[in-house]
Structure formats: structure tokens, C-alpha cells
Amino acid sequence: MHRSIGFYLRIYGKILVQDIKSKMSYRSDFIISTIGMICTNIAGFVSFWILFQNFPSVDGWSYYEMLFLYGFSLVSLTPVQCLFDNNWSLRIYVYSGDFIKYCFRPINLFFYYQSEIFDIKGLGQLAFGIGTIVYAWAKLGLPVTVLMILKMIVFLITASLIMIALQNAAAATCFWIQNSFYVLDLVFRFKDYAKYPITIFSPVFRFIFTFLMPIAFIAYYPSLVILRPDEIPLLSWLSPVIGLVFFFLSYKFWMYGAMKYSGTGS
């Protein structure tokens, strides 16, 4: 049965509001976790800052350009943190057999499963990332036009799909193998490497990080559209498409695993 996007958004909104309400009722936990998340971001920034106290530039990338990349990666990694956190619990539901309980609703299974958890802590990262981008943008003297901002938003959203896709695929391995936590954890660690310009790597690893584990699409390629408008490689323009394609494939893979699983698990 066809359900419109509006229908799904309304349901998501409702679950979100309730979820936040119930989290607020554990106030001290909520506050401490949020402070912890902010600390993580500040610490990440401080180590970045310390590093560049010693070096004026890296491989032709200035401090503010690197800062831009850093902010870009923070923002594009926010959706996976906020919206798809339930992927971390997937293997537990699958082993215990509790996953079957998601299969009987008249709505999309993937949506229904992911909608259950919204990790509000990620919003701190979003704010921090946006702040970093704005600061770097101003310092770099980049023009502020509607087109630029539009580009920025489109490229941020599509870039965020890459990490979501990687995480979906990694989480879905639990439908086949037992140690999926390590796979998920490994993929999760990739995100730390997304903030560096791919040009620092040797050609072999450039290839790997572009086509095999496409983390270069989380920040590097999409950022070029804004940072180096004179020499944008084809891959940068393709990055929105690549984001969409990867997301779609990971969704299909996830659903395939879910269907296969519910068909066999007792």
C-alpha cells in the first residue's frame, strides 16, 4: 500500500517528540551525556588547533581550508549519529529473535526500525560543525551567495548519505555473521579519517578511500565544490549521485538481510 512522504514525516515527528520527552525525564543523564558530547567535539577541535600551531599548512591546504573540511565532516556525520543510531542495536535484536516484532506493521520496515531511536546528543555536533564551517568560510573570504549556500546544503546532505550507507551495510552483516559488532565498529572508525584531504595519501590508498571505502566522499570531494571552485574534479560533481546510489544500495542490502532473516529465524 502506498504511503506518502508526509505520512512518514508525521509519524517520525510524533515518535521524535515523545522520545525526547522521555529522555528529558532522565535529566541528569541527559545533561551529562550532552556535556560529554560537547567535550568530545571541543577536544577534537583543540587537537586540531594544537597541530596547526606548529604547521602553517599541510600538503598545500591552509589552516582554514583544513578547518572547513573538519567542519564539513562534522556536519555530514551528524545524520548517521542522530537518525540511524538504532543500527547499533540491530545485532542484539537479531540474536535474541526480537527483530521479528518489527515485521508486522503496515509501514516500511527500515523506516519503522530506524525511527525508534533518535540520538539527540548528535545535535551538539551539528551546532559545532556549522559554527566551524561558518568561521572557516568567513576567514577564507568565500563569497556568500544563495547559489553557494544551496550547493553547500545539497552537498552536505548527499555526503551524509555515504556514512549512513556504510553503517547500514555494516549493521546488516549481522543477518549473516555473528561478530558483526567488530565490522560495525571498524566502519565507525572510518569516520575519523574523513576529515583529511585525500591528496595526502599515496595513489593506492587514494583509490581505496575513493572507491572501496568511499570515505573521501564524506568531506573531501564535496568540499572541493566550495573550496576550489576553479579546479573541481568530476568526482566532486558526482558525489551527490554517489551518495544517493550508495544509500539506496545499502537500504536494499539491509532489507534483503531483514527479509532473509525473518524467513529463517525461529
Binding site: 543523564d29 541527559f30 545533561i31 551529562i32 551525556s33 560529554g36 567535550c39 577536544a43 583543540v46
Partner: peptide, 18 residues
């Protein structure tokens, strides 16, 4: 004193590592 294990632990980890 607090029920927030995750929050406490991440703060410690971040401070110690940096």
C-alpha cells in the same frame, strides 16, 4: 552519584586522551 555511565565515561576518555 549519577546514572549517566555513557556521559561520564566519554568525558573521562576525551580528557585523558587529549
Amino acid at each position: 552519584y549519577t546514572e549517566s555511565i555513557w556521559g561520564i565515561n566519554i568525558m573521562k576518555q576525551v580528557v585523558v586522551m587529549l
